[in-house]
Design a protein around this nucleic acid. Structure first.
Lengths: 128, 128
DNA sequence: TTCGTCTACAACCAACTGGTTGACAACGAA
DNA sequence: TTCGTTGTCAACCAGTTGGTTGTAGACGAA
């Protein structure tokens, strides 16, 4: 399930081990064995993680004798950033408009506080 | 597994249905029933999706009689953006340094092209 | 060639996920 | 009060995931 590119990228980064691998590959390319060393899991498990990252387009592997050095493909980050920024901007713009409307409502009917809907700013405070 | 905040956020957005819900909540708040209407799944399934989004801190729900209006918490996006931008910048900076080093190597030993390591720019082209 | 290293592949297992159905609680309306 | 609407919870099921172990291929070194 979730076989589109964006889903694969988000799913790949949903695992802390894989995010750590990405963080280390941002510093320098590395082989499977080098990447596996600090973790308390088998090399095969790390190889599976790398396959997930590779399928998501976050990592590419080249052939160098029997070694398979891994390289971070940072361009894929753009895909996520674009998606995130789009909806964040959309949501924030809506909040600004709503704030303006509510400010007007306050001015016009601040004598009738019981029938007025809950301010969205109060709702937003609900989640810590 | 993966019970930290960032993992929950990435995992929540790895599902296309949940991303669509977020996209719609960016436009306006909605109830579970309203959100479920366009999808070909049960209301219970959508309720589960909302629970995942809520646990990730992406959505908050308030009580309004028997309705449970859902509201997008756009601030959580910052968490992802920060993580992504950090490693993208790190990787891009490394590429720039490497490019500079390789350019120098080209100048100094362009007479010996066989013993030189593969240019990283060629490696990066491997993944489409 | 033989040996050791690095890696991938296959089979297996437990846990999680995304879906279902059924039961039920909360609430407004009649 | 009774009824319809809205939504949650619990149980269940099939598919995926993240781990394991074992086997085997590819390759440099001796």
């Amino acid at each position: 399930m979730a076989d589109d590119r964006l889903s694969r990228v988000f799913a790949a980064l949903a695992d802390p081990t894989r995010r750590d691998i990405v963080a280390r590959l941002a510093v320098e390319d590395a082989t499977v064995g080098e990447l596996a060393a600090p973790y308390d899991v088998s090399v095969q498990a790390v190889s599976k993680h790398l396959k997930v990252l590779e399928d998501a387009g976050l990592v590419s592997r080249t052939k160098d004798a029997q070694r398979r050095p891994c390289h971070l493909e940072a361009e894929v980050f753009d895909l996520m950033t674009k998606w995130i920024e789009r909806y964040r901007r959309q949501a924030e713009e809506r909040f600004r408009r709503l704030d303006a409307v509510l400010a007007e409502m306050d001015d016009e009917e601040d004598h009738d506080s019981t029938s007025r809907p809950v301010r969205h700013t109060e709702q937003r405070g609900a989640a810590s």
